[in-house]
């Protein structure tokens, strides 16, 4: 009768109903296409809370919270890679897990395509920053647990920031701290750090990761419909340079808009790491 009944897990009751939230209906009805963004300006990101070193048994860890996106990250290693052949460089292994209660619908605790694409994006964002040439034959394991999910774009961006803070906390050598920011186009506007609701209304979205300290980008991921001019103001790949930033600030779009926020996010990560370094 019940083919997918798993007696090793705690199973829910036979009959259940989804809870009814009254604020959910409000939010859906209030915004209409063509209106400007509600709650914050188009170029604003959600407030970020970041704390390093919360998981005691991990070598390094970080917890990040941006309103309804909550991610815990733990870094283990460098440990000896046993299964692979001899390798001069180390390996960076990223795994993302969604908590069963992280989304509006319950997520079964199995690995699926979404976990992996998230892990690949975060790994790509971190890979150019970590000095793997110093860790022959070793593996660094990064485990991210999404406790609450509010938009996949936000998860990738926040996850990359948390993972980079956790790597720094673990004492793993990096060229620089990796920051990431997401953006979506809604109508004519570009909204930074969209929520799940906002991303649903967007025609395209963009995630940019980079090292603001070095003025380099590590990963750009684009999905949906997005005109090239909006994605790139190509001249400003090194836009963390203050002069260029100010020159473009009036028509900040896509990548530039994200990179401006890097400096803000970098300040938060730096503060979290310094606080943690002083306490230990």
């Amino acid at each position: 009768m019940q083919s997918n009944f798993d007696r090793r897990r705690i199973n829910g009751p036979e009959e259940s109903f989804p809870p009814v939230y009254d604020h959910e209906e409000e939010a859906e009805s209030s915004w209409k296409p063509g209106q400007s963004r509600q709650g914050r300006a188009a170029g604003d990101i959600r407030p970020i809370f970041l704390k390093a070193g919360l998981i005691s048994q991990a070598n390094g860890s970080a917890y990040i919270e941006t309103e309804h996106t909550k991610i815990a990250c733990a870094v283990y290693g460098p440990r000896q890679s046993k299964t692979t052949v001899y390798n001069e460089n180390g390996r960076l292994n990223v795994e993302v897990k969604f908590a069963p209660f992280s989304c509006t619908r319950r997520r079964a605790p199995i690995r699926d395509a979404e976990d992996r694409s998230l892990a690949v994006q975060i790994q790509q964002a971190l890979l150019p920053a970590v000095r793997l040439e110093l860790l022959p034959k070793s593996t660094i394991d990064i485990f991210l647990t999404v406790i609450e999910n509010d938009g996949i774009e936000g998860c990738i961006a926040s996850g990359s920031v948390a993972a980079s803070a956790a790597l720094a906390d673990a004492g793993i050598e990096m060229l620089g701290l990796v920051m990431a920011c997401s953006a979506s186009t809604v109508g004519e506007e570009i909204w930074l750090d969209p929520t799940a609701q906002e991303a649903q209304n967007a025609s395209g979205s963009l995630i940019v990761a980079g090292m603001p300290a070095l003025g380099t980008l590590t990963n750009v991921w684009q999905s949906g419909r997005l005109a090239p001019i909006r994605v790139l103001q190509v001249s400003s790949v090194h836009a963390t340079d203050d002069r260029i930033l100010r020159a473009h600030i009036n028509h900040s779009q896509g990548m530039e808009a994200c990179q401006e926020r890097f400096v803000d996010i970098h300040t938060i990560v730096a503060q979290a790491l310094l606080d943690n370094a002083h306490n230990t």
């Binding site: 060229l175 620089g176 701290l177 090292m211 300290a213 070095l214 002083h278």
Partner: peptide
């Protein structure tokens, strides 16, 4: 004391004179 702590990617100011040898935790780019 916080001014002495550096973060990954932060440039390290060097005194005038010969460039020191680079040990662990430092790189040149």
């Amino acid at each position: 004391m916080s001014s002495d702590l550096v973060l990954p990617g932060q440039p390290i100011p060097l005194p005038r004179g010969p460039v020191p040898q680079l040990g662990s935790g430092i790189y040149s780019r």
